[in-house]
Nucleic acid binder design. Structure first.
Length: 189
DNA sequence: CGTTTTTGACCGGCGC
DNA sequence: GCGCCGGTCAAAAACG
């Protein structure tokens, strides 16, 4: 609980904020600030969060052009709004296991092979009805040691206990981010 | 028996 | 219009 204080702001500030600067993304290849958590977890926490201010439909694009991963936001070219708030977070974690327990129960609804990645991409959806939070898990195209996990939306329900109690210990790198205070609905009107 | 995984099909957007 | 590409659906299997 050293680096606890699990708040979204903390995370956003402490890590990296992704702007929709897809224009000059070639300049700075790595949008990710790798911060090794000294926690007891076997995986390293390295995260990149996207700016939800735009309410965009972000596209996580893995391009090997510059041997880098870049996240592009289609703020202008919004295809469809992300149900659940439109929050997108991308975690880059060094782990041997692709799917790790973040405290929520997910149901895999698809697997697809991406062009720029030799590894397939897994699509998960929150098992809770009425919760349209989706999760995308894939291994890094260049570093297969890393797992790229994307979250879409915000859970409108309480965390679902699973086999593990990571959320209870706040040891899960993702759990704290996904534990919305109470105003997670963010103006649902 | 209920739920989840699996896997190919399907579909929509975009580029050519 | 067609093919590519990424995302989702859905039927059957697999799993508890």
């Amino acid at each position: 609980m050293n680096m606890a204080s699990p708040t979204s702001d903390f995370m956003l500030s402490d890590y990296l904020l992704l702007d929709d600067d897809d224009d000059h993304d070639d300049d700075h290849h790595h949008h990710y600030q790798e911060s090794l958590s000294q926690s007891t977890e076997p995986w390293e926490l390295a995260a990149a969060s996207s700016d939800a201010s735009h309410g965009f439909r972000g596209v996580i694009t893995t391009s090997n052009n510059n041997n880098s991963i870049k996240c592009k936001n289609n703020a202008s070219n919004r295809k469809k709004q992300v149900e659940g708030g439109g929050q997108r977070v991308v975690f880059r974690t060094r782990s041997e296991v692709e799917v790790m327990d973040d405290g929520y129960k997910w149901r895999k609804y698809g697997k697809k092979s991406v062009k720029n990645s030799p590894n397939p991409r897994n699509y998960y959806k929150c098992s809770s009805a009425g919760c349209g939070v989706k999760k995308r898990v894939e291994r890094d195209a260049e570093d297969m040691s890393y797992v790229l996990t994307s979250y879409d939306g915000i859970h409108n329900h309480r965390i679902r206990s699973s086999n593990n109690s990571y959320h209870n210990n706040n040891t899960s790198p993702y759990s704290f981010f996904h534990t919305p205070p109470a105003n997670s609905s963010s103006s649902n009107s």
